[in-house]
């Protein structure tokens, strides 16, 4: 044994860092909640996805059939790609719209109006998600507000069908998640030390270069975290695609629902759900690592 005493001390230190028992007792309700209502169901879904359903009943027979089905049958693939594309589009749209907004709130709007703007932005979110989705129906329908306005302005004669297409889904996604994106972008922009911008200017950078050299890179953590959120939430959303997008071109979540409500194939639904979770996990891991590497240095200055 090399240095016995130091080994002992190290062990003691480790032991001391270990939280006391009452800490665990304290968080027990939360842990139990997590375990019962989150971990267990996910585990259950995972297990069920490797079983099969025969005559509407779950049969305990381990198989990869569900997965080979998903990977070999076009409708699943098409729905998956559709979901992925819709979610990515939502990310791009909300980023493009939210970035200038967040920039304006952080750097242009006088400080005393900032809070007011934020509240105005969050206010619609006190309304239920479903109700907001139905409100968009009123606006986007063939005889809805949007088409009526275009008609009055003599821009169109026959209404453009937006409702029950994925354009409407996208409108919903963007509206619902843009605020989140704006908040996250704003908070990372607001954290930028104003002296950095002055320093850049002092060293000869114009407005545009200051933006690309300083502000944009330092706002990346907000942009990435925001994108992750928007992606995950739109990828997993069922409400907007159903209420606004209709069912003609189903997205992945709708396939899951169909498997449960239509064919009552629990194991297939589970396999689809597992694929969704894995997709989300991959996105999370890929991008969060990127955020970590960016934010490593941002704590100073």
């Amino acid at each position: 044994m090399p240095d016995q005493s130091s080994f002992k001390i190290e062990k003691m230190v480790k032991f001391r860092n270990f939280p006391p028992i009452r800490f665990f007792v304290g968080i027990l309700p939360i842990s139990l909640w997590e375990i019962i209502f989150f971990m267990l169901p996910v585990l259950l879904i995972f297990i069920v996805s490797f079983l099969i359903v025969k005559e509407l009943r779950l049969v305990f027979q381990w198989t990869l059939a569900n997965y080979t089905d998903i990977f070999s049958k076009t409708p699943y693939w098409v729905a998956y790609v559709r979901s992925f594309r819709l979610a990515l589009t939502a990310v791009v749209l909300s980023a493009v719209l939210a970035y200038p907004l967040a920039y304006a709130i952080a750097f242009v709007v006088p400080a005393r109006f900032r809070r007011l703007l934020m509240v105005a932005m969050i206010l619609p979110f006190w309304t239920n998600y479903l109700i907001r989705a139905y409100s968009w129906q009123i606006i986007l329908a063939n005889n809805g507000l949007f088409n009526e306005i275009l008609k009055v302005l003599n821009i169109i004669e026959t209404p453009i069908s937006i409702l029950y297409t994925h354009v409407a889904t996208e409108v919903g996604f963007t509206h619902f998640y843009m605020v989140l994106m704006t908040m996250l972008l704003y908070s990372s922009m607001d954290a930028i030390n104003r002296n950095l911008m002055e320093a850049a200017r002092d060293l000869g950078a114009g407005k545009l270069r200051t933006f690309f050299e300083i502000i944009f890179p330092l706002s990346l953590p907000g942009l990435i975290v925001g994108s992750i959120f928007v992606f995950i939430m739109s990828f997993g959303d069922f409400v907007a695609p159903s209420i606004l997008g209709g069912g003609k071109k189903p997205v992945f979540t709708q396939m899951v629902v169909d498997e449960i409500q239509g064919t009552v194939n629990l194991s297939m639904a589970s396999a689809l759900a597992v694929i969704m979770v894995v997709t989300i996990l991959i996105v999370l891991i890929l991008f969060l690592r990127r955020v970590e590497s960016i934010t490593a240095g941002s704590s100073t200055g």
């Binding site: 950095l196 300083i214 330092l218 100073t300």
Partner: peptide
């Protein structure tokens, strides 16, 4: 200018 908090670009 040399700033009081240095204002080094953290990234």
């Amino acid at each position: 200018m040399v700033f009081q908090d240095y204002a080094l670009f953290p990234h």
